[in-house]
């Protein structure tokens, strides 16, 4: 994912813009990172340079929790504390 995409992205659920971008791995493009909606607290993972922006009921809980675990140290504390639909509480 290239950074220009952030100019047009909004939260798929509450349509809030601008969204926050936190980059974990960046090479030619953003390989791994997270997109966060400060309005409804939903977070969307960027995996293998592809953002996943699905509504709650279509998200892959297992994959999302693995992602949270993998990037726990770099994940903003706000997402870990109150991120939706999953956060650090679900990791326990």
């Amino acid at each position: 994912m290239k950074r220009w995409l952030m100019e047009i992205l909004a939260c798929p659920i509450c349509k809030y813009h601008p969204l926050e971008l936190h980059v974990f791995v960046e090479e030619e493009e953003i390989e791994e990172g997270v997109i966060y909606c400060p309005k409804c607290y939903r977070w969307y993972p960027i995996i293998e340079a592809i953002p996943h922006m699905l509504p709650d009921e279509l998200r892959d809980r297992k994959e999302d929790l693995e992602f949270l675990k993998r990037w726990k140290d770099k994940m903003p504390s706000e997402i870990l504390e109150r991120g939706k639909p999953f956060n650090a509480k679900d990791l326990r």
Partner: peptide, 10 residues
């Protein structure tokens, strides 16, 4: 990866 019923754009 998204659901076109919920487009993630402004």
């Amino acid at each position: 990866v998204g659901d076109i019923r919920f487009l993630p754009f402004k």
